[in-house]
């Protein structure tokens, strides 16, 4: 490397070493500071700082319930989520098409003279705006018709736990998407989570760590926290295994999903 040819010069060496030691000191201070202030630091993966996700929202009752308990159990929230994502994806595509069109037309604008350019540009902008507005309205009505109606019905019905999405810690796109994916898992596991009467209501609690591949396949499970009762732990692990495969893991959270950041609590 070129850098090291300078190594023989004394000044360079001394400044480099000084800079190095200052940087090391900064690093050490940052780590120390981080520990004191409880900021997650990569080298010291502190397993005691576990964030719990709460994704249950209670809906206030405003009228007598229309749906019976049995009917509510049969409604699959994941269906609604999937359908919603579909509609959103469609909306995204349509938006992209429209903006593409607008861009294609704009390059022509610079070839005109100033006045005409302005007018043409403005015109184009207006047209572009209108188009996007309409598409938005279309998407909205699409969304309304299919999903909002269903969701609104559920919410108005009251007495249904509907999924919220909690933003945990950092508010980057990654964290919320991770939480969203994680929140979809209990609904898939719950139908298989069954206990015989002698294990119920005993206050047992266990937590199972899961490792999921990009296709949603369960790579492995690990008992993160035992309940103290082997059979209880076994039932929980069985429920997880039987409920796989899970939905495909989005690329940007694949790292966390495959290295076991997701833990399912039975019951919490």
């Amino acid at each position: 490397m070129e850098l090291f040819s300078y190594w023989h010069e004394e000044t360079f060496k001394s400044y480099f070493l000084r800079s190095l030691s200052v940087h090391i000191l900064i690093l050490l201070f940052a780590i120390l500071f981080g520990r004191i202030l409880d900021i997650p630091v990569p080298f010291f993966n502190n397993f005691s700082k576990i964030t719990a996700v709460e994704s249950v929202v209670r809906v206030d009752l405003v009228a007598m319930p229309k749906m019976t308990l049995a009917e509510l159990k049969a409604v699959d929230m994941s269906e609604v989520q999937f359908a919603k994502e579909n509609v959103e994806a469609q909306a995204m595509e349509e938006k992209a098409d429209v903006s593409k069109q607008a861009n294609q037309e704009n390059p022509e604008a610079p070839t005109f003279n100033q006045e005409k350019k302005k007018n043409f540009e403005n015109l184009m902008k207006e047209w572009g705006k209108k188009k996007t507005k309409n598409s938005n309205a279309d998407n909205d009505s699409l969304f309304n018709a299919k999903i909002k109606g269903k969701l609104a019905q559920l919410v108005a019905e009251g007495n249904k736990m509907s999924k919220g999405s909690a933003l945990v810690g950092q508010t980057e796109g990654e964290a919320s998407e991770f939480t969203l994916y994680l929140s979809s898992l209990p609904d898939r596991v719950r139908p298989y989570w069954r206990l015989p009467s002698y294990l119920k209501n005993q206050g047992f609690r266990c937590q199972v760590k899961i490792f999921v591949s990009s296709s949603g396949e369960l790579i492995k499970t690990a008992l993160f926290m035992s309940s103290g009762n082997a059979e209880y732990d076994q039932k929980a692990i069985e429920a997880v295994k039987r409920s796989s495969p899970f939905p495909a893991v989005p690329e940007n959270i694949l790292d966390r999903a495959s290295k076991g950041d997701m833990v399912l609590g039975f019951p919490l």
Binding site: V53, G169, G265, P267
Partner: peptide, 11 residues
């Protein structure tokens, strides 16, 4: 960097 095990309740 982001890190941290996240627990979600199955119920």
């Amino acid at each position: 960097a982001q890190a941290g095990t996240t627990v979600i309740a199955v119920g």
